[in-house]
Design a protein around this nucleic acid. Structure first.
Lengths: 201, 201
DNA sequence: TCCTAATTTGAATGATTGCTCAATAACGAG
DNA sequence: CTCGTTATTGAGCAATCATTCAAATTAGGA
């Protein structure tokens, strides 16, 4: 084997996530990418094929990381609804000086909304990922129902869509510069939404 | 007075709304604008100053039209909550062949999410407009409370933010290709969210 | 019917876009 | 140390970007 690649693919993808998450797809130029990933066009195109290829791979990695974060909070709280709410609080509250997260809004939703039409590959990918997340929520809620956390008559897939709508809603709302107290209240209100779904003890 | 302008400013703005609403700001080129508004660069720049100027004016007009639509539905149903829900159903259901609306997602939210940073004028404008809408909801809910539609202990500003979050959420969710039945169910579920806020008769 | 002021046109601007590729550099195998 | 293979570089590509402006056009007032 001759010369081995000197760049770290995972680190490059992470930098791409941070960049695209913040600036979106169309407003990000190759110059931005070269600077942020510290790679020259030749290496970039050898590694990722195109700007769009890099973006799609970054979006996949972003979603995987998000799913990991959610599952972590579900594991820590021992319940799907408490877990998702804890995730949202962790994501949206008291993270002003934290590194890593660049934007309250979800990168997948940002991509969905900035895609230009139904033929746009970005829209296809974003739609697919949202469906995957919906499926994950559905499965988790089914488990929760079996464990007696939820009422027996709950339609889990339907509830998953309501849950996803809440996540999409708050995260977008948070982008509009709401303060800590407003977000706190809003998250409390969203919490209450799911009272009718919770099993009574 | 010499030569009078031959283009219709209102029609031009409407075309700009349709174009920007569908494709967003950064993915829309001046060539697209020239074609869709049937105007040449000279006229465009004389009339609107810049691409950004045109966009900001279009976004203002979009919001005004949206507020008109919501108020219309509130007037027709004789209640704030029924009105907003009727607006969402009208916007998201059975409009496949309708002209005018280009996208389920809100153009203001799309703008907020595609803005690149806090210094971006697009973000400032989108934030401002969302606050205006929140204020409109707050005022309408205050009236509803005074009219006995809502419980006396309801915090109207706080409820307005929850309502706005729901609107942002469903409209974004609808963009991900949900079918009629799924949207119907989701809108029903969102309707139920506000049961605890409604006055009991 | 001319004059005058405003509008419209479209070619041209320099900058930037995403991307290519020939040249150079760096590594492991022999 | 040399060879062969691959990674990296960065100048340069055509195309497109938003924008400008001088010239042509169009109208109303005199």
């Amino acid at each position: 084997m001759p010369r081995v690649a000197q760049y770290d693919r995972k680190a490059a993808i992470d930098a791409a996530i941070a960049l695209f998450w913040r600036r979106g797809y169309y407003a990000t130029s190759l110059k931005d990418i070269e600077r942020e990933l510290d790679m020259r066009p030749g290496s970039l195109y050898a590694a990722f094929g195109s700007k769009q290829g890099l973006f799609l791979e970054a979006l996949d990695a972003y979603t995987a990381a998000m799913e990991r974060d959610v599952e972590e909070h579900i594991g820590a709280t021992g319940g799907v609804l408490p877990g998702v709410m804890a995730y949202l609080r962790w994501l949206l509250l008291g993270r002003d000086s934290d590194a890593g997260v660049t934007t309250p809004a979800c990168m997948v939703v940002k991509t969905l909304l900035e895609s230009t039409d139904d033929e746009d590959p970005l829209r296809g990918k974003a739609t697919l990922l949202l469906r995957k997340v919906e499926q994950g929520f559905t499965d988790a809620l089914e488990q929760a129902k079996a464990a007696g956390e939820l009422r027996a008559n709950v339609d889990c897939r339907r509830m998953a869509r309501l849950l996803q709508t809440q996540v999409m809603g708050v995260r977008s709302f948070a982008q509009s510069g709401a303060n800590e107290q407003q977000l706190q209240q809003l998250l409390d209100d969203i919490d209450s939404i799911f009272s009718p779904y919770r099993a009574v003890h």
